[in-house]
Computed example of a mutant assay.
Amino acid sequence: MRSTPARRHHLGLGLALLSFPIGMTQGAAQTVPAPRISAANVAESASSVPGDYHFGPGDRLRITVYGETSLTGEYAVTSGGLISFPLIGDVEAGNRTRGEIQATIHDRLAAGYLHDPRVAVEVVDFRNFYVLGEVNKPGEYPYRPNLSLEQAVATAGGFTYRASHKNILVRHNNEDSYHPVQNDRSSQLMLQPGDTVKVGERFF
């Protein structure tokens, strides 16, 4: 049976329509680049940790050794201020900054394990803070960055009716004793991980 020009035209158009989506799908797949992780990405993420922040028990860190997936992971700071790291064993992390921890891991890995390792440290979870005394829900709470005294009290359910707004004490994580908060500066006071707030009782 002979094909007429009209029949050949419709047949060609049908084949073109069938092949069009396939070609578009292949082209789209080729233009989407695969995600890449670079040392710059790691450093930028880690920079969210304040440079002068001193780690302590209860902090949980993510340590990235660029190009070494077996070493990259999350590490908790123990009650003794240590983290247990593959190949090099215990690393002192208590009361040390991000830069100090990075330098220690770099130096120990470079001493016989890796050539010029690139190390980045960031915080996954901060240690908790505490609110005690005349608040509705005294206790231990997860810390979040840029936490003010007012926000900490609100997290603990707010002041009780017996609370004295002029008798608030704060003990920072690295201190042995409480110090009073000036009433006119209480709204500006920023807390650190591990801090303890104690709200006193007012005298009627």
Rank of each mutant, 00 (worst) to 15 (best):
A16L: 12
L169D: 08
Q192A: 07
D176R: 01
G158F: 04
T25Q: 12
T31L: 11
F159V: 02
T4Y: 00
F203P: 09
A152F: 02
I37Q: 05
T31E: 02
L17I: 02
Y178K: 03
V131I: 04
P193R: 01
F85V: 10
I88L: 09
E44Y: 13
F55Q: 02
E201S: 08
A39V: 15
A163V: 11
E175I: 00
P21R: 03
S164Q: 09
S38P: 14
P21G: 03
S45L: 10
V121H: 02
H106V: 14
A16F: 02
L87E: 03
V170L: 14
F159N: 06
Q182T: 13
V170D: 04
N146Y: 11
M190S: 01
N183Q: 12
A120Y: 09
M190T: 02
G99H: 12
D176S: 01
H10I: 14
T155W: 00
F20N: 02
E44G: 04
M24C: 09
P138D: 00
Y53T: 05
M24P: 00
A39E: 12
R2Y: 04
E122N: 15
F55E: 01
G51W: 13
T160G: 02
L132M: 15
L17R: 00
A28T: 06
Y113H: 13
N146R: 05
K198D: 07
L149P: 12
A34P: 03
L18M: 15
D125V: 02
A154G: 07
L191P: 01
G194D: 07
S164C: 10
S45E: 13
V131D: 04
L114G: 07
P35V: 14
V49Q: 11
P33I: 14
S187G: 06
N183L: 10
V121A: 08
D195C: 00
R127N: 14
E150A: 08
H115T: 15
Y161H: 09
Y141H: 01
S45H: 09
T160I: 03
G89Y: 14
G81Y: 01
H165K: 14
G94L: 08
E122V: 07
R96G: 15
V32S: 01
